[in-house]
Design a protein around this nucleic acid. Structure first.
Lengths: 206, 206
DNA sequence: AATACATCTTGACAGTGTCAAAATGCATCA
DNA sequence: TGATGCATTTTGACACTGTCAAGATGTATT
């Protein structure tokens, strides 16, 4: 039953050690290998070296597990966006560029995780976990706050921060998704398309 | 085994009549009722009054059936967009408004069908049918042509029709998806958000 | 050492997509 | 007409899925 080598945390508290974390790790691995659609709890359990139903003592059901992975994604994304926005070495305009490029790049680099974070299955029908909402909402709010700031600085147009944020986010989300989903196929042009979008939001002084 | 009443076409050619069409109809019904995720070929067959494997003589597999439904969606969408663009009673600017609003409205009004048309499962991994591509590509191309025209008319900004079309489509797609997937929850504001997006693309003469 | 509880396993069930083989109905040709 | 061929449909089967119930096992606490 081979405990994972990276098991440095305190001590294996119970039978397996920290199965919850091991499951999350294995799940992300499996998803990266074969996509969300091909992730089954049984394969996951096997990969983690436990029986089929062991995961049910750490996640109430499959949706719960997916929400946990998505939550991790939001945490990473939020952190990255915050770090970018607080980077005093860059001008406000540059930070907007970084934000937009970073957003699309994150999505394209982690298509499966991104799909999970925004896939309908998680948000529709009251499926979202308390934890997920607790992590995602501040991430959403942060985007609005940033947009408000960029508007105040005269970097981007518009005077309604919420609406502008929704449109900008929508554009980045849509572009990312069309690439991820294979509808925009020329992936070499990702930055160019993103740049073209940025150009439409930025105020041009001439 | 009750033949559907709307069976006016020529004559029932074989056992069932026109099972292929009946399946498509039943599938759209089931999807509208319970979503794509809950559509199973078995339930579909039952609804159509045939055995589990009967559909396999009209669709090579489930993906093939989904592609056929999506193709119908593209046909309808393409037709509607073309009718709108050719509406000589409206100015070019108005037609752009109509296009954008119509796009988002179509998506929001038919969330399941829209999900099918642009969901990753269909376009990823060579999953798309010959038929689907044959219907969808002209629909995509039409959007680029319209954008080129609006640029030529001085209605919207930019000089690269393809890039602009990708950005505009991306924005509309993203906004629609964020609403459909339940991330933007205030559905009363759909038109307002869309309008805000339109405003960012339209050239303002002042 | 005994008890309580978290954790994990085994067994089971209904549901899924899809294949192979057999049955059925229709159309066409002798 | 009857016989043949083919499109269509069905029955049976398989491997796979999520999830529940009941039991077994290990750990912590008294």
């Amino acid at each position: 039953m081979s405990l994972s080598s990276s098991q440095v945390t305190i001590r294996p508290s119970y039978h397996h050690g920290d199965l919850r974390q091991a499951l999350l790790r294995a799940a992300k691995q499996l998803i990266a290998e074969a996509g969300i659609e091909n992730l089954s709890l049984r394969k996951l359990a096997e990969r983690a070296g436990v029986s089929r139903t062991a995961p049910y003592h750490h996640f109430s059901d499959k949706n719960d597990l997916l929400c946990a992975i998505a939550a991790e994604g939001f945490r990473r994304r939020h952190q990255s966006a915050a770090a970018n926005f607080d980077n005093r070495a860059r001008s406000m305009l540059e930070r907007f560029h970084d934000y937009a490029n970073g957003y699309v790049q994150f999505a394209v680099d982690n298509p499966e995780e991104y799909e999970l974070m925004f896939g309908r299955s998680i948000w529709k029908h009251q499926n979202s976990t308390e934890e997920l909402r607790h992590v995602a909402y501040p991430c959403f709010q942060h985007q609005v706050d940033m947009v408000r700031c960029w508007q105040d600085c005269g970097v981007i147009s518009g005077n309604n921060a919420l609406r502008s944020a929704q449109v900008i986010w929508g554009a980045l989300h849509g572009i990312a998704k069309l690439f991820i989903d294979g509808i925009y196929t020329d992936t070499a042009k990702i930055e160019e398309v993103t740049h073209c979008a940025i150009d439409m939001f930025v105020i041009k002084y001439s």
